[in-house]
Computed example of a mutant assay.
Amino acid sequence: MNRTCAVDELLDGFSLEMTGRDTGEVGAIRDIVPPGTRINVTFLGGEDLTLRRSAARAVKAAGFVPVPHISARRLASPAALSEHLATLAADGTVEYVFVVGGDPATPHGPYSDALSVIESGLLQAHGVRRVSIAGYPEGHPDIPPAALWSALTGKSAALRRTGLAGEVITQFGFDVDPVLDWIEDVRGLGIDAPVRIGVPGPAGVHRLLRFAGRFGVGTSASIARKYGLSLTNLMGTAGPDRFLRALATDYHPDRHGVVKVHFYTFGGLRATSQWIADFRGGRLT
């Protein structure tokens, strides 16, 4: 398979990420994003339930598949989780969810991590069928590597026990090598769920580096050059074209299993969607 075909295969079935503040852009991407594309709706601390609910409903109304985020440590009680899921079910947006521990250092209620939400039994009770969980190929600034691996294996096992389909969505990165090495390690543990590799959408260099610093993503000078980032021109922009082409070259289904890509839309939902359409159409060099 040549590299162009490999890139097309990786991009087939790509997913996107948005916040509640991006709701106004959902209608604008209907002509450039394939129907049925999964769009994750993040759970930000500054956005209330009404805003997130409106975003998920807008995604569904536009012909896409909403994937609402559930932040375990932000849930005050089982009743709060049940109420949130019941609301999603009433809107027809509960089938796919992404469950993550979340930002608060101290849980607001009984759920200390994503595993505790998965094991609660409430997801299935409200009609959830597929659960995405987080993966960190380059680690997490606040969580030791051993704890990350333990969490990943525990969540994967719990999904199998509860009969929920699962997939892993990774943190974004700028270097293909550690991502693919990590996926091989995941497969070595017997985890065969699909993996969606996090890819930063086109955005300003300064913005990309700020997010990278927050999440512990490697941005050495050599990695920056490989990706196409200019550390001397922070006012410039960068897209993931080099990353995607390198991924298409080095990805091997027999070793890495089912792999797709998930775009973090730091530069905006519409801008990222247009970039993907242009890239797939050969309009970017």
Rank of each mutant, 00 (worst) to 15 (best):
L234P: 02
L269M: 10
A277L: 08
A246R: 12
L231H: 15
R161Y: 09
D278K: 08
V195A: 13
D254E: 10
G190M: 04
A203R: 02
L247P: 01
G281N: 04
I197R: 01
D241W: 07
D254H: 08
E184T: 03
L164M: 00
Y264K: 01
I197H: 01
K260Y: 08
Q274F: 00
P253L: 07
F174K: 04
S273D: 12
G268P: 05
A248Q: 03
V261Q: 01
H252C: 13
L229T: 10
A221C: 11
N233D: 06
Q171E: 05
F279N: 05
D254G: 00
D241A: 09
G201W: 02
P178F: 04
L244M: 05
T232P: 02
V217H: 11
A221Q: 13
F263Q: 07
A212G: 11
G198F: 04
D192M: 14
F215M: 09
T162A: 05
Q274H: 02
G204P: 06
L164A: 00
L180D: 08
M235H: 12
V259D: 02
G281A: 10
V259M: 04
L180K: 12
Q171G: 02
A246H: 06
P200E: 01
P194C: 15
A271D: 11
T170A: 11
R225Y: 07
G198H: 06
A221Y: 12
P202C: 01
V217D: 10
T265K: 11
L209T: 13
P178W: 10
A203H: 02
P240L: 13
V258N: 11
S220C: 10
P202T: 03
R255N: 04
P200Y: 00
Y227E: 07
V168R: 03
H256P: 08
Y251P: 13
G281T: 05
T219G: 00
P202V: 02
I276G: 07
W182Q: 15
R280S: 09
T170L: 10
V205R: 03
V205M: 01
V168D: 05
L189A: 04
R280Q: 15
H252P: 09
D177R: 10
G281K: 05
S273N: 14
V261P: 03
I191S: 07
G228S: 07
A221L: 14
A238R: 05
G239V: 03
L231Y: 15
P253K: 01
D177K: 10
D181C: 10
G213V: 00
D254T: 06
G281C: 05
G198L: 10
A165R: 11
V205F: 00
V195Y: 09
V217N: 09
P253F: 02
R161D: 15
A193E: 15
G218D: 13
L209E: 12
G228T: 07
I183M: 01
